[in-house]
Design a protein around this nucleic acid. Structure first.
Lengths: 232, 232
DNA sequence: CTCGTTATCTTAACGGCGTCAAGATAATTT
DNA sequence: AAATTATCTTGACGCCGTTAAGATAACGAG
């Protein structure tokens, strides 16, 4: 909750830092009730403010969701970087580490994760959002290349022009799709039938290792892919 | 639209076949406005009926969505079977065919696909829904096993006890995750930055073949996986 | 065929939602 | 000190899902 206003200001007519308070409230509501129970009015209520107040800061609900999505994407990128840093060991384990970080982030707050991927109307063209998305994607591209024994793209190349990563695009897409799909299936409950009565965290623990190992071996085996795919 | 009532009955007090009419209207709304613009009242309106009428047939919105999800899962399974039948050629192309069918189904009506995977509250315990889900999953399990040169599980085994497919579970999960993730990323617009100004169908055409080939080779290469995965 | 019973649908209302227009109040600039 | 601007409240609008009460049709039993 954290009284964000710089100094008191709660009972003042002007809130003082409503933007931060709204975002904090929104994250709270998402964690507590999920995306389904997410409401602009409820966020305003928790920020101690009238339903119309947020309009000036975010325009409308879409604006608030875009802000949340941007933060969520940033956290995703941060979690991935942290995971890589913690497991610099071997190429294969780096990829598994970011995969695990990705899924764990999704599972830790599914509502937030759903906002990031636009399950509710938001502005994917927003510059800040695009920057966060690009950052996360660049990490993935870099790690996929590393895992295949290739040089990562120059870090100057902030905006990954599609041509630059073209040769690795299938591998990157496979990695992202597999990890994102696993995360999505998990938080949507589509895999619950696999766990007699365990939680989704249990499901993750049970299958993540083998799944990511399989993915990693698929990517490195792909070095000779062109032929392999055509072989049979 | 299709005037479903068995005979006239449109201006009658009793609709006659409201259940079917509601489902048809719901599919229409989903196709037209997506899940975001989906509304029980709008469906009732199109069925030519008061907002309270559907309650008797579906209980509430959740009931309607569960019915839609069941049909959607069934169509998914049917599309996969049809794709396999059309491409019986070779093991590898069978898997690519169902993968393509899966993604194309998602792309053809994203709103419907989102309902199937519970982006809006529904009853995943509903027996009819579970049956449809099990059917689709069984197809995937069978095809993954076939692609690895193994005998498919006996078709008697309608309900795939987790133990039965345990040895292949990582492969099945990778396949499902990759395909589902690709479909999800596509319909959520997360991959739009890859297409300068093309449609999502263009994106699919551009990347599906290489992506699915890579996936297929990953699965068959996994025959020696046990050791690889255990090594950690 | 008639009559009660049951299934189906309508009307009217409730509270909650996102959003907008008008006005009040504080902060900031001039 | 006054004027301007930014911020927030109030009150209203239309739409939403759901419910309760009553109207109407279909149906089975006598």
């Amino acid at each position: 909750m954290a009284d964000a206003p710089v100094r008191t200001a709660r009972e003042h007519y002007h809130h003082g830092s409503l933007r931060e308070a709204m975002i904090a409230a929104a994250e709270e509501v998402l964690a507590e009730r999920g995306l389904g129970g997410f409401t602009l009015r409820e966020c305003a209520r928790r920020a101690g403010v009238s339903p119309a107040a947020p309009a000036h800061h975010f325009g409308n609900l879409t604006g608030l969701l875009t802000a949340i999505a941007t933060l969520g994407f940033d956290d995703l990128a941060t979690a991935m970087e942290a995971a890589v840093a913690a497991a610099q060991a071997e190429r294969r384990s780096r990829l598994a580490a970011i995969a695990r970080a990705y899924v764990e982030t999704a599972l830790a707050n599914p509502g937030r994760f759903r906002v990031v991927f636009g399950q509710r109307e938001m502005d994917r063209q927003d510059p800040a959002f695009r920057a966060a998305a690009t950052r996360a994607f660049s990490i993935l591209v870099r790690e996929v290349r590393l895992s295949r024994g290739l040089a990562p793209p120059s870090s100057q190349q902030e905006k990954p022009a599609p041509e630059v990563l073209a040769p690795d695009l299938p591998e990157v897409l496979l990695a992202w799709s597999a990890v994102h799909g696993f995360a999505t299936l998990l938080i949507d409950g589509a895999l619950d039938f696999l766990a007699a009565n365990g939680s989704r965290e249990t499901l993750l623990e049970a299958h993540a290792a083998r799944l990511f190992a399989l993915l990693a071996s698929a990517l490195s085996a792909g070095e000779g892919l062109a032929k392999t795919a055509a072989r049979d």
